[in-house]
Amino acid sequence: MAITYEAVKSLTADLYEWSLKRIPDDAKEALDRAAAAETNESARKVLSMMRRSADRAENTDRFVCSDSGVPVYFIKVGTQARFEGDVKRAISDGFAHLVETIQPPLLKHVTNPLTNERSYAGKDMPMVSWDMIDGADYIDITCAPKALGSGRWASLEIFSFPTLEEIEAYILDVIVKTAAQQCPPVTIGVGIGGTFDYCTKIAKLATLRPLGTPSSEPVLAAMEERLLKAVNKLGFGPMGTGGDTTALAIHIEYASGHGFTPVAVCFNCWINRRTRARLYNDGRIERIGGPWRRII
């Protein structure tokens, strides 16, 4: 028994499609909670429109948003996983197959940065990050398509031995600069420490945690709690209508590093695209979306 080319090809494509047509259950619940607590009437109207939009997409098998993003996957390979066929190529073949078959069809979002030409395929697409899991007889795949609005406001700065105060001031500053351009209420992912590349990766992974699950590190859990309150007092509100709901969650990850400390801040927009599944040696597929499991 082994994980086959065909299985990887169809699962990576399916994860993409699911992420476009259905927002995660925890995002629905967070929107409902926000709508119940929101004091601004326009904001409440926008939140309820968001829920209607998500429900109609789900019920009619259509996209929640037309910006279907570019394909981004995080894959962790179990050390006991066995493979049959070119499973790495299966991911790009799966995306190509999705482009040909998905209904409704996708817009061309894959952009050559040197010419701004758009297409369905391009250098390094899909973007896949690889990791390993000791002992597992499966591969664990997260699909998180990145759209323009949710992608372009991310930011990174490298500090030297910063205080928590400096880090928090920087995070708030990044959020103020976005000025509600990234379709709030957003999920904010923050990475602290590591190196330039590692810090951005953990910030991105932080946005993929089930909404509102606190960090297991008490210092960060407390930081998440106070920053979420502060962000929601900035007053941007859903789609910039004003109100109390600028962010649904802020998730922070950290890594040890040297004395230079990168801080990365990135966003997931209100539709919260992220799907995840495990594919086992015996061909079984386990969709993961329920209880929080660490993905880094």
Binding site: M49, M50, A54, A57, F63, S66, T241, C269
Partner: peptide, 13 residues
């Protein structure tokens, strides 16, 4: 006028 991002089905209909 600001229109909902992520409202594809509502706007299309």
């Amino acid at each position: 006028l600001s229109i909902l991002g992520g409202g594809a089905t509502l706007h299309t209909d």
